[in-house]
Design a protein around this nucleic acid. Structure first.
Length: 487
RNA sequence: GUCCCCAUCGUCUAGUGGCCUAGGACGCUGGCCUCUCACGCCGGAAACGGGGGUUCGACUCCCCCUGGGGACGCCA
């Protein structure tokens, strides 16, 4: 596989990833269990997985369930299921952030003891008012630090305080983002974030930092809606005296309306893609190309993706989700599957799962697969191999074939077929053509009624293939079952 | 409102100062093939948001504008 010349240039241009060989990569996917694994999360997981696999590092999974009120076991299961279906295997045990509360609290207390954090006695109402005022006056909306240097003796008696980080007021925080490049944020824009809530539980912002450090995460790859969080978190890392990981904020996936795709806004869970009939490899390929590229390559299987993937080829602008392209990739991977694998997908969803049907499918599935985009369509189009069409036909165009002349032609053909010596595609086509010639009509005038009678549809694989696979008995039986034909 | 990010065909993208008459893919579309629908093959329409610079030369570098997105929670 030769790399295009330009790819080399591109790589050498941004190339900020100069790690010592001994430094092994650790990435993590850290979803919050408040719903299914949606498509954006799936891509974030994929990129983290690919980056770790490409660099021979570790890919960890951490469930961010610090919000006990909103986290559910069902959501955790849905996320795990989704990742398994996508075949994104994680290393080691699943981390549950909630189980590490003690550690998070300890870190916050240490900051407090070191004078790098402080107690804030503002009530939620007070904060809401602060925000409102700031908004009205056109200032940025953030906590004003009123308890930052206030005498603890002023503390109201029966108010449980939150613990806030005492972050630097001046200067700026620079994130040297692996995707976005250097991003500078004035420290004056960032307020003193809450580490521990008034009930003593740690916030997400704090837990993330402690966990990423403790887990040895080297690269945080996540949606760019976290970009400003990276600045906040960097300051916490500094306060704790830890080295911050490298950040890579990948652009978000937008819906057809150009807005961020989220659980509350149009995003489907990966389970929906599964039940819609998409293959995990197709979804991975599609998601990979949303924001990442390797020259003009489009069809990239997972092994190739692992070999090629790196952060320097991740684009910076948001992408819209496009089902049409997913469809085309899905049909590509479907067509590459072995008949046995395809049948294993289809047969369980058919009414008749007998050996006879299985054998028909084995023979007919390849050409069936040429005509569909999803597994669902494949199942739908395979049904005629399982059961004969019911009459009258539900498809008007097909039903029309079984009227008048069509019916006459079929009756005559049935006669001819019953006496046919060889039953293969060549002999069948020969017989049909001979009949067409005898009646001085086009082959289509015979093939279409045949198709309707045999498959119940006006579109199907080649009709002689269908007849061959169905066999003489079944073919004749189906013809005989057509209302208006007696034999 | 404040801050941050982004900007090439309808969509995903290639492009890193001359290789660009801007390439590929999906979709759309004309044709061929043909028993239907597909597949396949051949062809077509389709984009650098605008304005200033820099330069011998800008899709490419800089600035402004415009447009889009994101963040501003005791959510994650």
């Amino acid at each position: 596989m030769s790399r295009p010349k330009r790819m080399v240039n591109r790589a050498s241009r941004r190339a900020p990833i100069i790690e010592s060989p001994s430094m092994s990569v650790v990435t993590r996917f850290a979803p919050s269990p408040t719903g299914f694994l949606h498509i954006g999360g799936a891509r974030t997981a994929l990129f983290n997985w690919l980056y770790a696999r490409h660099h021979g590092g570790r890919f960890m999974l951490r469930i961010e369930d610090t919000d006990a009120k909103r986290s559910t076991r069902e959501a955790v299961d849905a996320i795990l299921d989704g990742l398994r279906w996508l075949e994104l295997d994680w290393d080691g045990e699943v981390y549950y952030q909630s189980r590490r509360h003690a550690r998070h609290i300890e870190a916050a207390q240490a900051l407090l003891a070191a004078g790098k954090a402080y107690r804030c006695y503002c009530s939620p109402e007070e904060l809401a008012q602060m925000r409102q005022t700031a908004k009205r006056e056109g200032r940025s909306i953030r906590y004003d630090g009123r308890w930052r240097d206030r005498d603890p003796a002023d503390a109201p008696a029966n108010v449980d305080p939150v613990i806030r980080l005492k972050a630097p007021l001046d200067g700026e925080t620079v994130i040297d983002d692996l995707v976005q490049g250097p991003v500078r944020v004035a420290n004056s824009q960032l307020d003193d974030m809450i580490l521990l809530r008034s009930d003593g539980t740690p916030t997400y912002m704090h837990s993330v930092v402690v966990d990423d450090h403790d887990m040895g995460v080297t690269h945080v790859i996540r949606g760019d809606d976290h970009l400003t969080n990276a600045a906040r978190q960097t300051r916490l890392f500094e306060a704790l005296g830890w080295k911050a990981p490298r950040f890579a904020h990948i652009p978000l996936i937008h819906g057809a309306d150009g807005q961020k795709l989220s659980k509350r806004h149009g995003a489907l869970g990966v389970d929906a893609y599964r039940s819609l009939g998409y293959l995990p490899e197709a979804l991975r390929n599609y998601l990979l190309r949303l924001g990442w590229s390797h020259g003009d390559d489009e069809v990239i299987d997972t092994a190739q993706a692992v070999a090629w993937f790196d952060l320097d080829a991740v684009g910076k602008s948001a992408a819209r989700f496009d089902f049409a392209k997913l469809d085309s990739l899905n049909s590509h991977y479907l067509r590459e599957m072995a008949p046995e694998a395809l049948v294993a997908l289809v047969l369980p969803r058919l009414d008749d799962q007998s050996a006879v049907v299985r054998e028909r499918l084995l023979q007919g599935i390849a050409s069936l697969t040429q005509r569909i985009k999803t597994v669902d369509e494949l199942v739908e189009n395979s049904k005629f191999y399982s059961a004969g069409p019911a009459f009258p036909l539900t498809i008007p165009k097909a039903a029309k074939q079984l009227e008048g002349d069509g019916l006459v032609v079929l009756a005559e053909l049935a006669e001819r077929l019953s006496g046919l010596g060889q039953w293969n595609e060549e002999s069948l086509e020969e017989a049909a053509k001979a009949h067409a010639q005898a009646r001085e009509i086009g082959l289509g005038k015979i093939a279409q009624p045949l198709r309707a009678a045999l498959t119940g549809s006006n579109a199907s694989p080649g009709i002689f293939e269908v007849m061959r696979i169905l066999g003489r008995n079944e073919t004749l039986a189906r013809l005989a079952a057509v209302p208006g034909i007696e034999r």
